[in-house]
């Protein structure tokens, strides 16, 4: 798989990025911040996913509309009453609140989508292999076993069919259920016995005797350090602003959104730059590639 500049960073850097992006995204209710996070997340998501990324954006529109319209049905606080639904006030403030909640949810989903693309299971393992080696090993084994057991399932079903014990489309439900249970039962025995063989092999190869190596060698490079320091500085600026209440926003019962103003501008800019880092890195690399190619 092709990895862009941001995905090639050390997993600790990318993991920290996503924790901060999703964490702050779930915390800050200020509309300007939600919009910035939305722009950053959707631009990076589209860069790495291409056409499929746009599809998710289009699909999130009905979700946005649904939550926006649904929120006033359960939240009746607010000043400007638009209508009465089931005898309860349907307010403008609650609707705007619904927009904010929907925006936050979609932003979180988009960041989670980027996370899935960047933090592949092998990078996950590099990150946690040193910290929690046993559980990382367990996760590796599970992720390997799933496709392995799927193949075994097909083999068992094929073997059953070959001796005339297979099931067809029009067999009764009861027969199908008991057949799939027979397959599952064989699969379980086979896999558990396979597990015993794996365990013996692990023991023979000295599992647990020393530090484990990983599939891909990923080093913490100077550029990762630069990235980490920059991220910490930007993050600190945002946290300072949050602590001062610069990102406060209330919707119901009275709408009260703190204007960004000149005092909040540095923190707001820091938030935007932080979240745009993956997009910027992707575009800069793209540009460099084009320039170096046009030089040939």
């Amino acid at each position: 798989m092709e990895r862009d500049r941001f995905s090639r960073c050390h997993p600790s850097v990318t993991f920290a990025f996503f924790i901060v992006a999703i964490g702050l995204g779930a915390m800050i209710m200020h509309p300007a911040y939600i919009i910035v996070s939305g722009i950053a997340a959707s631009s990076y998501y589209c860069l790495i996913k291409g056409y499929r990324g746009l599809k998710l954006l289009v699909l999130s529109v009905p979700l946005f509309i649904f939550i926006t319209l649904f929120n006033p049905l359960v939240n009746h606080q607010g000043q400007r009453i638009l209508a009465y639904v089931f005898g309860r006030p349907y307010t403008f403030e609650a609707m705007v609140y619904g927009m904010a909640v929907a925006g936050m949810l979609i932003v979180m989903l988009l960041w989670a989508g980027c996370f899935n693309h960047v933090m592949t299971s092998d990078r996950f393992m590099v990150l946690f292999g040193g910290l929690i080696p046993t559980l990382s090993m367990l996760l590796t084994m599970i992720l390997r076993l799933v496709p392995n057991m799927m193949r075994k399932t097909a083999q068992i079903a094929g073997a059953r069919k070959a001796i005339g014990r297979g099931v067809g489309e029009d067999d009764p439900m009861k027969k199908k259920a008991s057949d799939s249970m027979n397959v599952a039962s064989s699969l379980l025995s086979w896999s558990l016995e396979g597990g015993a063989v794996t365990a013996d092999a692990m023991k023979a190869r000295g599992y647990g005797a020393g530090k484990r190596s990983s599939y891909e060698i990923i080093r913490f490079t100077p550029s990762d350090l630069v990235m980490a320091v920059g991220m910490i500085m930007l993050f600190t600026a945002v946290v300072m602003l949050i602590a001062k209440g610069g990102t406060a926003a209330e919707y119901t019962p009275v709408m009260n959104i703190t204007p960004i103003g000149s005092s909040g501008l540095p923190g707001f800019a820091a938030y935007g730059i932080f979240l745009m880092l993956p997009t910027i890195m992707h575009l800069v690399e793209d540009l460099q590639w084009r320039i170096s190619r046009s030089g040939i």
Partner: peptide
């Protein structure tokens, strides 16, 4: 956990 236990837990989780 010993490799055998680890392997068993892995198989059950995969299941």
């Amino acid at each position: 956990p010993a490799p055998r236990e680890l392997a068993t837990v892995a198989v059950m989780s995969a299941f």
